[in-house]
């Protein structure tokens, strides 16, 4: 379905769409898409609001091998509606993770890789997007009873909203310099809290707080990788082979509460403060 010569010559993952990203990361010839776009399972909510739908609703689910390991990849298309999750796309991701967990209960060691380029809930499907994201959270935790879930935020949309929580639930998180990771989008924070608190137009400021490099340096991501297909695939493969971490980041409440207790919250915060506070005891 894809122009293979373009794929072979491209090293950047960020420049690829969701389907090509999944194809690029899986071992050659092993990519098998589920609920492919020709099945046209599209959003039942967008067209009635006058919004053009996409045939795959912006989420690609593919099974295959990654360096020989059985995986299911769920990739979000950041270019479609800002990578927002609606009912169908959300159910595709949740359902795939649920089936991966079921595989493991039946003795098949399916792992999951999530390619996250998303603003979070699709507001045109609001509560169904939110419910789907809760299902995704549930399924990520369930699957990690058996196998790791690797999240990848490559860029260029970044990972926000309820899906940033999904990123926080993963066994491991891989980021590039192009990645941004945060709960709230800059414009919403500025609107809620004011310009002085958060200037959404000050790009260097936003990157210094939520960019991939800062997240890695603060221990909120596990790998900081160049935007290169081969290198990203290599890191995912290593992490999958490591198996489950002793304690994933979202299981370290005591450690984070201890760190936060040491912070002077009076002055406004600087990126270096976060690095100092969180570095040291790297998880």
């Amino acid at each position: 379905m894809t122009d293979l010569t373009t794929l072979a010559n491209s090293c950047s993952l960020v420049e690829l769409g969701a389907r090509q990203r999944a194809q690029a990361l899986l071992d050659t010839g092993t990519f098998r898409e589920l609920l492919d776009p020709f099945q046209r399972v599209m959003s039942p909510w967008l067209a009635r609001q006058g919004v053009v739908p996409q045939a795959d609703d912006g989420v690609v689910i593919a099974k295959g091998l990654l360096n020989g390991l059985p995986v299911v990849i769920a990739a979000i298309e950041g270019a479609f509606q800002g990578g927002s999750l609606g009912e169908v796309g959300g159910a595709k991701m949740a359902g795939a993770l649920e089936l991966a967990a079921e595989d493991n209960r039946n003795g098949v060691p399916t792992r999951a890789v999530l390619l996250l380029e998303t603003g979070g809930v699709r507001l045109q499907e609001a509560n169904l997007g939110l419910a789907a994201i809760a299902d995704i959270h549930a399924a990520i935790v369930d699957l990690q009873q058996y196998q790791p879930v690797v999240g990848v935020v490559a860029g260029s949309v970044g990972c926000f909203g309820g899906m940033s929580i999904a990123a926080g639930l993963c066994s491991y998180l891989v980021v590039t310099r192009e990645a941004r990771l945060g709960l709230n989008g800059p414009q919403v924070i500025e609107q809620e809290a004011g310009l002085e608190e958060y200037d959404s137009r000050d790009r260097p400021f936003i990157w210094s707080l939520t960019g991939g490099e800062q997240r890695f340096a603060s221990g909120l991501a596990d790998r900081y990788v160049a935007d290169d297909v081969v290198q990203i695939q290599q890191h995912i493969s290593e992490l999958l082979q490591q198996g489950l971490p002793a304690r994933r980041r979202s299981q370290q409440a005591a450690l984070f509460l201890h760190r936060l207790a040491q912070l002077d919250t009076e002055p406004q915060i600087e990126p270096a403060t976060v690095r100092d506070l969180y570095r040291g005891e790297r998880s």
Binding site: M1, G17, F38, Q54, A55, A79, F80, Q81
Partner: peptide, 10 residues
């Protein structure tokens, strides 16, 4: 055959 190209992006 059949094929898909492009994306519903801006």
């Amino acid at each position: 055959g059949r094929t898909l190209v492009g994306c519903v992006g801006s």
